[in-house]
Simulated scan of single mutants.
Amino acid sequence: MPTNEHELPLEMVRNRPQLVPEMLRSVFGLNVSTNARATLASESYADTNPAELRCDATVLLGDPKSPVLGVVVESQLRALRQKTYSWPAYLASLRLRRRCPVVLLVLCPDQATARGCAVPIDMGHPGWVLKPLTVHPEMLPPITDPDQARRLPELAVLSAPAHADGPQSEAVLRGLSAAIGSLTGDTGALYHDYVMSRFSDAARKLMEDMVKLDNYEWQSEFALTHRAEGRAEGRAEGRSEGRTEGEVKALLLMLAARGLDVSEDVRARVEACTDPEQIERWIQRAVSADSAEDLFT
Results as ranks from 00 to 15, higher is better:
Pro153Ser: 09
Gly242Trp: 13
Phe199Asn: 05
Arg231His: 12
Ala179Pro: 02
Leu213Glu: 15
Val157Gly: 03
Asn215His: 12
His192Tyr: 14
Glu221Arg: 14
Lys205Glu: 14
Met207Glu: 06
His136Arg: 07
Ala223His: 06
Pro141Glu: 11
Glu233Ala: 15
Glu229Gly: 08
Ser197Ile: 03
Gly246Thr: 00
Asp165Val: 05
Leu224Glu: 09
Trp218Tyr: 13
Ala250Leu: 12
Ser240His: 08
Ser240Arg: 15
Tyr194Gly: 09
Ala256Tyr: 06
Glu208Asn: 13
Gly246Arg: 15
Ser169Phe: 00
Ala202Phe: 01
Met139Pro: 04
Ser220Lys: 08
Leu183Glu: 06
Ala189Met: 12
Arg243Phe: 00
Gly166Asp: 11
Pro153Gln: 05
Pro146Trp: 02
Tyr194Thr: 11
Pro167Leu: 11
Lys249Val: 12
Ser197Tyr: 00
Glu138Asp: 15
Gln168Val: 05
Ser240Leu: 14
Arg235Cys: 06
Glu229Ser: 12
Gly166His: 08
Gly259Tyr: 02
Leu213Trp: 02
Ala223Phe: 07
Ile143Asn: 01
Glu233Trp: 10
Gln219Leu: 14
Leu190Ile: 09
Val248His: 02
Arg258Ile: 05
Glu208Val: 07
Glu154Thr: 08
Glu208Cys: 10
Trp218Gln: 06
His163Gln: 08
Arg231Asp: 06
Asp186Pro: 13
Ser169Thr: 07
Pro142Asn: 04
Pro141Phe: 01
Val195Asn: 03
Ala149Gly: 03
Arg243Thr: 10
Leu213Arg: 15
Pro142Gln: 04
Arg151Thr: 10
Ser220His: 04
Ser182Val: 07
Asp209Glu: 15
Arg198Asn: 14
Leu183Ile: 09
Ser220Thr: 03
Leu155Ser: 02
Leu252Glu: 04
Thr184Pro: 00
Leu255Pro: 09
Phe199Trp: 10
